[in-house]
């Protein structure tokens, strides 16, 4: 492309082709959904099994979460080195997940205050907000559906016993992170 005078139809062609190029610039974030999905799924199922076996140290499995945090940070730093543009959607996503992370920490930190029996249902609700809004921003229906399933699972889990709430978390992960995450990855690979 050079610097030269153009006519009206050339103008339109340029605008159209350039706008098309930026519209396709979505980064593949499926890694986060898949990694966090499997991590939380594994921790909640392991916690449930250990509770059934009467292992008192069962909650120790949640130490997997800081590991996930570190992996996410390393992956994020590597990705940002490769990034050539910053999109508005990417910007909204980072604020959304930042808010989600803070909300989860507040709920977990205040669990002794609000009661452990409602902590997990509220967390499922927060997971659902994350995938529902992300699905909207990316126009990716499986994430939106996953979010709706989380809302439903959250309501039901309020009535479940603590140990069974762990299975609701596992189900929420499967429906709103693991399955949509793999579908998102497949979409990018095509």
């Amino acid at each position: 492309m050079e610097e030269r005078e153009i006519n009206i139809s050339e103008s339109l062609k340029i605008i159209q082709s350039m706008v098309n190029k930026t519209q396709r610039q979505f980064s593949d974030d499926s890694f986060y959904y898949i990694m966090w999905g499997w991590l939380v799924f594994t921790a909640s199922v392991a916690h449930f099994i250990l509770l059934q076996l009467n292992v008192p140290q069962a909650p120790i499995v949640w130490l997997l979460m800081p590991v996930g945090g570190i992996v996410s940070m390393i992956y994020g730093a590597k990705q940002s080195k490769k990034e050539k543009i910053k999109t508005y959607v990417g910007n909204y996503m980072s604020y959304l997940w930042g808010a989600m992370g803070m909300a989860m920490l507040v709920v977990l930190g205040m669990a002794f205050k609000i009661g452990f029996d409602v902590t997990y249902p509220i967390l499922i609700l927060i997971y659902g907000i994350g995938t529902f809004v992300s699905g909207g921003l990316l126009s990716f229906r499986p994430l939106i559906i996953g979010g709706v399933i989380c809302f439903a699972l959250s309501v039901v889990s309020f009535f479940a016993m603590f140990q069974y709430q762990l299975l609701f978390i596992a189900a929420a992960m499967l429906a709103s992170y693991i399955i949509p995450g793999h579908l998102l990855k497949a979409k990018f690979n095509n």
Binding site: M1, E2, E3, R4, E5, I6, E10, S11, I14, I15, M18, V19, K21, T22, Q23, Q25, K84, I85, K86, T87, Y88, G90, N91
Partner: peptide, 27 residues
């Protein structure tokens, strides 16, 4: 109303910010 400047502006209209190398490749 010039080929390259219009292309650059059309690219930047859709993103928050872009690298020089991205603009160079795409245009």
């Amino acid at each position: 109303h010039s080929q390259l400047r219009l292309a650059v502006m059309s690219l930047l209209a859709g993103v928050k910010e872009a690298d020089f190398s991205f603009l160079k490749e795409e245009t």
